[in-house]
Each structure stands twice: as C-alpha cells, then as structure tokens.
C-alpha cells in the first residue's frame, strides 16, 4: 500500500511514575482522513495525543510526522486542547485567543500585526464567530468556546490536527458546524486525529477509528474495525450498555 503516512507512531510506551498509561502503541495514520480515537475513561486517549505532541515524556518508541520527528515538523501540526483545560475567566478576547494560532509562526518576541489579525478574523468567520471577535471569553457558551479553539487551530494552517474531545459539551448547532469543518479539512487533504466519546456518531463523523485501552485494540477504516467484537475488547462487558444508550440529546 503506497499511501503517504501523516502520522506514524511506533512502539510508543508512555509511563507515569513507572506505571504504564500506554503500552507499545503502533499507529499509522494516512494523510487526508478523519480518525476518531475511542476508548473508556483512563484508556490513555489524551495521553496518546499529548505524547505524540511531545507534551509528555515518552518511555519508549517514536512518533513521526510525515516521516520526520515532531520537533522538525511543528509548523505542520495543530493542537486543539480540551476545552476545560484553560481558565475561561482569563482577561482576553475571542480574537486575541484566535491570534495565538499565529504565535508559532511568529516565533520569539515578534508581535502579531495586521496580517495575523486578518487571518484570525477569516478563521473566526469560518467557524461562524465573527460577531463575537471582541467578546470576552468568559461570556462564551461551551459551543462558542470550542469554535474559538477551532478557529485558533485554523489560523495555524496546519496539515495535521490533533483534537482532544472537540464535541465535548457543545450544542447541536456547533456539533453540526464542527462536522462540516472536519469534512472541509479532509476535502483539502488535511488529516484529523480526534479523541471522541460518543460511539454512536463515530461512523457518521469519522472514516477511520482507533480503539484504545492502554494498548491499541484495533485501528483502521470504520467499516472494517468498528465492530461489536473490537468494541467489547475495548470496553469489556460494558459495551452493551453503551450501544443501547440513546443518541446524545441536542442541548
């Protein structure tokens, strides 16, 4: 199979105080797909993203972005952290947060200027948040916070997007908007790796999936690996509960 690999994770083990959080993960992510990472709580989903981004020390293994170490490919990667990981009472505006997407390209000391501002405004427009540009971030709803983070990622104009639970606690309208955005990204050849919680929407929103529970259970196109057996192997006996759960209510 001669397909260029956007992300290649091999033999990745991550440990916290000599207790493994991820064991020997191999993961090949081809370019231009939307991949969901699913698994129970404590399966190491967020850890996988953070370790791939070099935010956590790696006990063994390696991560390659288009064939090279992450450090050399930073400009090609964008990270959307969990919405709850920051203090939304921080004194700053939506536009200002989105402009942070430019900081990597700006490098040290240089401040964002008119060009960066235009890029941020365009990204805000794309996620339907133009009118909120000057809004203080504490006044945003959960969905608007998530759109702000996505706009910041768009500003980075990356090839690969690591997203940590982009659908967590967002309203139905935002959920649809994010799905549209993901499809647009895929259409322009970008790759998305997203931690996802809602099993029901995996086939609808994503085309590839990785099932994770400390080790990699399965990874591949959704119609091949998103099977009852694999889910049971990932979630244990609890999967029947999950699959019979009603579809998430629109908030």
């Amino acid at each position: 199979m001669e397909q260029s690999l956007a992300i290649q994770i091999s033999d990745l083990t991550v440990a916290y105080q000599e207790k493994a959080v991820l064991w020997d993960i191999d993961l090949d992510v081809p370019q231009g797909i939307l991949m969901a990472i699913v698994g129970p709580n404590g399966a190491g989903k967020t850890t996988l993203l953070k370790a791939a981004l070099g935010l956590l020390p790696i006990a063994a293994g390696q991560v390659a972005i288009f064939g090279k170490p992450y450090k050399e490919q930073r400009g090609l990667v964008s990270y959307v952290p969990q919405r709850g990981s920051v203090d939304w009472d921080f004194p700053t505006s939506v536009l200002d947060v989105v402009m942070m997407g430019n900081y990597g390209k700006l490098g040290w000391v240089r401040r964002p200027g008119a060009a960066e501002r235009r890029a941020a405004e365009a990204a805000l427009d794309k996620v339907g948040m133009s009118e909120y540009a000057q809004r203080q971030i504490s006044q945003l709803s959960g969905g608007q916070q998530q759109r702000t983070f996505l706009a910041r990622a768009l500003v980075q104009d990356a090839q690969i997007y690591f997203m940590d639970e982009p659908f967590q606690g967002v309203d139905a309208t935002t959920e649809r908007a994010i799905v549209e955005l993901l499809k647009e990204l895929r259409a322009s050849g970008k790759t998305v790796l997203a931690v996802h919680h809602d099993l029901q929407t995996v086939p609808e929103y994503f085309d590839w999936v990785t099932l994770l529970n400390i080790r990699r259970i399965a990874s591949g196109p959704v119609d091949e690996v998103f099977t009852e057996d694999n889910l049971r192997a990932t979630y244990g006996g609890r999967v029947s509960l999950l699959s019979s759960a009603p579809r998430k209510e629109a908030a």
Binding site: L55, V77, P81, V86, F90, T92, M100, Y103, V109, R110
Partner: peptide, 21 residues
C-alpha cells in the same frame, strides 16, 4: 519583551508547548 510568550504561558501552557515555546 516576552509579553506574548508570558500570555501564552498564563492562558494555555500545553498549546504553547505544542508551538515549540
């Protein structure tokens, strides 16, 4: 001088790390 970097540190440390700071 490091205004931008300190702001990033105070608001979203992990994101800042992912940018290479």
């Amino acid at each position: 001088i490091l205004w931008k970097e300190f702001k990033l540190l105070s608001f979203d440390r992990d994101f800042g790390s992912s940018l290479g700071f």
